[in-house]
Structures are given as C-alpha cells and as structure tokens.
C-alpha cells in the first residue's frame, strides 16, 4: 500500500492494471496490431476498393498475382484478393460469435456449478466430463447433419455447433475460479447484506472471473477459427471462409500447374491470424496473473 489517501487521483480498475501490463509486452502489442489490421482489412477493404468476389471472368482463369488482381484469380477467374478478404470476414465473425456464445454459456454454467458446489456441482461437472468424452468432431458433424440440407453453408448451425463444443473448457475454468471465490469474505459480506444468490453471482462473482475469461476467450477465438476451417475443409463449413478457400486450392493442386497463390494467401492469412491471437492470449494471461509468468 503506497499513499492510501491521495484525493481526486483517478481510480484505476484492477483490469486497467492488466491492460497496462499487456501494453508493456512488445510481442503481444505487435500481435494485437496484426489482429486489428487484419480485421479492419477484411471488413473495410472489399467495400472501399469495390472488390467483387463473385463475378466470374472465364478469360482470366488462374491468373498469378498482378497489379489488377493482387492475389491473382481462381479457377473461375474471380478476383482472389476479394475472396480471401471476404473469407476472412466469415472466419473472424465465426471466431467472435462462437466465442461469445461459449463465454455466455460457459461463464453462467461454471459460475452456478462452482457457487452452489456439492451435489449441484457434481452433477453439472459430470455432464461436462461426459460431453468431453464424445469426440468433438463427431459432435459437430452430428449437429451439422441435424440441420437440413438447405441450411448447409448457413452460419447458424456452424455457430451453434462450435459454441456447444467449446463452452466446456470455459465452464471448467470458471467453475474452478468460482470455487475459490465463493470462500472469499466479500461473498459472505454480500450475503450478509441480504443479497440473494443470483445477485451475488452476477454482481460479485462474475466480475472477478472476467479477467481469466478474457484470456480464455482470446485463446478460444483461434481454436474456433481453425475448427471452422477444418469443417470447411470437410465440406461442412461456411460457403466462403479461409478454410473453404484452402480446401478448394488443395483440390486444384497438381504436379503440372501449381497455383501457389491459391494456397498461400488464405493459409498465410489464417496462420498469421491464429498465431497473433494466440500470442495476444498468452500476453493477456501473463497480464492478468503476473505470478504465472515463466
């Protein structure tokens, strides 16, 4: 405790300290920049440059990168830059939406299990164990197949499937945190004030786990993106995403004509995004809990 009584000094939230520590981590700062630039590029550039991912030009099939087509064209003569950027939109969106789904489910589920403990916890966490036991690809494919054929390529089943698979880890992490938090005296203090369980969970416990939740959410985004890419690769994913593009590119690779740009751009972007997100996640973890640093 330094000066306990400095009047009118701006108060810092504990999370503000974590952000400051993150900003001091150079690698994390660069990675965060890459993620931001990538996001802005995918969402703004196609509109700004009037890029068109769908119009076919049979005369310009399989053009290598040039001034007119930065990333070349694909087998139908479509501008590949437009396709890669639009694909990035879906991949990033899937990452974000599925992660939010799993944050909401995981945090509530974990907080309830951890807070009530005992038999409630036992039953709830055994269910999580059971879900873990099912191979997740099997689960995802099953959910995807439950939606009708016409919904194929529609984002909703993909979000649902990925969110349902990924919340398990979040629930475990949160539950572990809440198990220790509920023993803290401020939880008792809130209950002594007459606060009910719901209020204690939402107002006192959840804010205390948000740090660790942010970390795991950041690490979940790349996991979800790669899962979606894999689904796309299997032909079960979205219509236009990085995974879908890579899958198509692999299809046309042959020893005589190696259209390298078809493979290099989407997989390069994908790899760069995933790497950056992982570095940011690691940086966040160190920032939220400095003691955990190796």
């Amino acid at each position: 405790m330094t000066e306990p009584l400095v009047p009118h000094e701006p108060s810092r939230r504990p999370s503000a300290r974590a952000w400051r520590r993150l900003a001091q981590n150079r690698l994390a700062r660069i990675s965060l920049g890459i993620v931001l630039v990538m996001t802005l590029a995918c969402f703004l550039l196609p509109a700004l440059l009037h890029l068109d991912p769908t119009t076919t030009h049979p005369a310009f099939r399989h053009q290598p990168p040039s001034a007119a087509h930065w990333f070349g064209t694909d087998g139908l003569g479509r501008d590949y830059a437009a396709r890669v950027l639009m694909g990035g939109q879906t991949s990033l969106l899937v990452g974000l939406v599925a992660t939010l789904t799993c944050v909401v489910i995981g945090v509530l589920y974990g907080a309830v299990a951890g807070y009530y403990g005992g038999r409630v916890d036992e039953v709830m966490m055994r269910f999580v164990d059971f879900m873990y036991g099912i191979p997740y690809m099997f689960l995802v494919i099953l959910i995807m197949l439950m939606f009708s054929e016409s919904a194929r390529g529609n984002p909703v089943p993909v979000f649902v499937a990925l969110g349902l698979v990924e919340w398990l880890t979040m629930a475990r992490v949160v539950r572990g945190q809440v198990l220790t938090l509920r023993e803290r005296e401020f939880v008792l203090a809130a209950r002594l004030l007459g606060a009910g369980d719901f209020r204690v969970i939402v107002r006192h416990i959840v804010p205390n786990v948000l740090g660790i939740v942010t970390v795991y959410a950041t690490l979940t985004v790349p996991t979800v993106i790669i899962l979606e890419s894999f689904l796309s690769f299997l032909g079960l994913g979205l219509k236009l995403s990085w995974g879908q593009l890579v899958s198509e590119a692999v299809g046309v690779v042959n020893p005589l004509a190696f259209f390298w740009w078809l493979l290099a751009f989407p997989s390069g972007f994908l790899a760069l995004t995933l790497l950056s997100l992982n570095v940011v996640g690691d940086g966040l973890r160190d920032a939220v809990d400095p003691r955990g640093q190796r």
């Binding site: 108060s11 504990p14 999370s15 005296e185 401020f186 203090a189 002594l192 804010p207 205390n208």
Partner: peptide, 17 residues
Amino acid sequence: IAMIFQDPMTALNPYLR
C-alpha cells in the same frame, strides 16, 4: 442485523468501487 468481520482486506469486492 448487520455484520462486519475480521479482515477488511478481503471483505470488500476488489472489482467494485
């Protein structure tokens, strides 16, 4: 009935003003 206890360090929620 209100109650206060031993350790004021832990009895306040660190994340709330």
